[in-house]
Design a protein around this nucleic acid. Structure first.
Lengths: 171, 171
DNA sequence: GAAATAAGTTGCATTACGCAACCATTTGTG
DNA sequence: CACAAATGGTTGCGTAATGCAACTTATTTC
C-alpha cells in the first residue's frame, strides 16, 4: 500500500535515496549547482509541476540539503541555497552525468561539459581510487559489515565475503 | 498527466536518471554488486513487490545494464548479471553510500564498509580530481555547452559561465 | 510422481504526480 | 500612490506508479 521507505533498511545507499532519490530531486540539486536559487528559476528550468516543486524543496530544506534564506535581510521572499551537505552531492551528480554521457548519449554528444577552471580541461572521470592512486574496479573490492551493521547484514557480509568481486566475475 | 520523462531533456543527468533513477532501481543494482543474480534473491533481499521487480529487471535488461542469461546452457530459467554498462555504475553507488554514511547515518554507524582487497583499507572518498590529482570543489568548476548542446543549453551555459562556482559562492 | 521452489502475471487498492486554476504578497511603472 | 505584473506558493481533480495478495506455469527436490 504505502510506498516503501528505504530509510528503514540497514544501508546507506537506501538512506541517501530516501532523501535525494525521489523523482525530480537530483535534477533540482543539479539546477542549484547551475546557479538556480529562486522557486521560479527551478520551475522554469525544469518544467516541474509547482506543487511537486514545493514538496521537494520543503523536504530538501528539512533534510538540510538546501537552506531557505530571505532574499534580503528581513524580506519575506526566500531563496534556496546548497548547504555543505548539498555541495557534497557534486561527485554523485558528476558521476551520473559522465555515465549518461558515455552510455546514453555518447561522449561526442554531451550537452554540457564540466571544466576545471584552472586548466580549462574537462574534469576527468570520477573513479574509485586507492590511497596510492591505483584505480579500483569491482573485482578489487570486498564488502564487509561496518560498525552499524544489524544482525542480517552481519550474516550477509561475513568478513570473508567479497561481494562486489562476485558480481564482477559474472562471466 | 503522464509522469514526466527526463530523457527529452538536453542533459546527461536526466538521461541517466531515466534509466537508473526510478524507485528501487539503484537498490537492485546494489544487490547485483553484492552478488544477487536470481529473481528471488533480489526479491527477498529488497522486499520489493514482485510485479515491480519484474518491470524494473525488464527495463534494466532492455537498457543493457543487466543481461538475462540462462542459468545453465539451454535452461529456461534465467539469471541477471551486470554488463560492462552496469559495472560502471559502481562509482555512483559508492558515492551514494559514502554520502549517506557521512550525512545520514554518521560514519561510525556505517552498515557496510567497502574494502580494497589489496590493502584491507576502506576505499577512500569518491571525489572530483584534476589530472594532477588536485581535489576539485564546486568553486573550481565551470559548466560550458558541450558538442550536443541544444540552442537553449548554449544560451544558458555561455563559455563565460561558471555555474557551479556561482552555487558555491552562495554565502 | 508429489511437494516445494522459482519466476513471474493479474486484479485491486492506495499513493504519487501532472495540470490548471486560484490566492496572497512583493515588485515594477507612470 | 494606483495599478499591473511577477513571485511563491496552495488546492482540486484526474491519471500513472506502486504495494499486496492470489494465481499460474516451469523446474527441482525427495
Amino acid at each position: 500500500m504505502t510506498r516503501s521507505h528505504f530509510a528503514s533498511m540497514n544501508c546507506a545507499v537506501a538512506h541517501t535515496l530516501d532523501v535525494i532519490g525521489e523523482w525530480w530531486t537530483l535534477l533540482i540539486i543539479r539546477e542549484a549547482f547551475y546557479g538556480a536559487r529562486r522557486f521560479a528559476q527551478f520551475q522554469r528550468n525544469l518544467g516541474i509541476a509547482r506543487n511537486i516543486l514545493t514538496v521537494r524543496l520543503r523536504k530538501l530544506v528539512e533534510t538540510g540539503v538546501l537552506e531557505r534564506v530571505p532574499v534580503r535581510p528581513g524580506a519575506k521572499r526566500y531563496e534556496y541555497r546548497l548547504t555543505e551537505m548539498g555541495l557534497e552531492v557534486l561527485p554523485i551528480l558528476v558521476a551520473l552525468m559522465q555515465w549518461g554521457d558515455r552510455w546514453m548519449l555518447g561522449t561526442d554528444k554531451a550537452p554540457v561539459r564540466v571544466i576545471d577552471r584552472a586548466t580549462g580541461n574537462e574534469v576527468p572521470q570520477v573513479r574509485l581510487l586507492a590511497e596510492d592512486g591505483r584505480p579500483l574496479g569491482p573485482e578489487d573490492l570486498s564488502v564487509v559489515p561496518g560498525p552499524g551493521a544489524d544482525r542480517a547484514s552481519r550474516l550477509r557480509f561475513r568478513a570473508a565475503g567479497r561481494a562486489a568481486a562476485r558480481a564482477a566475475r559474472a562471466g
